[in-house]
């Protein structure tokens, strides 16, 4: 429970934020991405305001020897821009633009019960599995996402 419960609480707050800001609504996300159409600024407000508590937490973190419930911080230190990062980002963006769902909204949106979101989430998991099998023989990369 020491690990499950904090994860659950954080997930609930995260999912509530996605639903409150309507970010699990593909129509609204696509309207943000459609800069030549009827543009909807919601995603910019959401991302901009999400940065505030997140950035404050990173400032607090610098004064902490260790997190409250774990032995140490596990923050990626890699600063190198490499091909997998850019290629992966480009692929993700294409998929995001095709449907208007990214991983958080796809999973929070499962609660809606629309078959389209379940299908998308299943395909997303299949894509992750595909990557897992393709790279299984290589050295593990540190994950951020």
């Amino acid at each position: 429970m020491r690990k499950f419960l904090p994860g659950l609480v954080v997930g609930v707050i995260f999912g509530a934020g996605l639903a409150l800001s309507d970010m699990f609504n593909p129509a609204r996300v696509l309207a943000f991405l459609d800069i030549a159409g009827a543009w909807d600024p919601t995603l910019a407000y959401v991302m901009g305001s999400a940065l505030i508590p997140s950035a404050i937490a990173y400032r607090i973190r610098q004064r902490m020897a260790r997190p409250l419930l774990a032995p140490g911080f596990a923050i990626p230190e890699n600063r190198q821009l490499d091909r997998p990062l850019l290629l992966g980002g480009a692929m993700f963006g294409i998929g995001w633009g095709l449907v208007g769902l990214c991983p958080g909204p796809a999973l929070a949106g499962l609660v809606l019960g629309t078959w389209q979101i379940w299908l998308f989430a299943a395909a997303m998991l299949a894509g992750m599995l595909l990557h897992h099998f393709v790279t299984q023989t290589r050295a593990p990369a540190h994950s951020l996402g």
């Binding site: 991302m47 990062l85 997303m124 996402g145």
Partner: peptide, 19 residues
């Protein structure tokens, strides 16, 4: 939906992260 999901799943793993 299928193509988008596959690209999002594979791409976020390859690029180590999403939104």
């Amino acid at each position: 939906l299928i193509a988008g999901g596959l690209l999002v799943g594979f791409g976020t793993r390859l690029g180590n992260g999403c939104t």
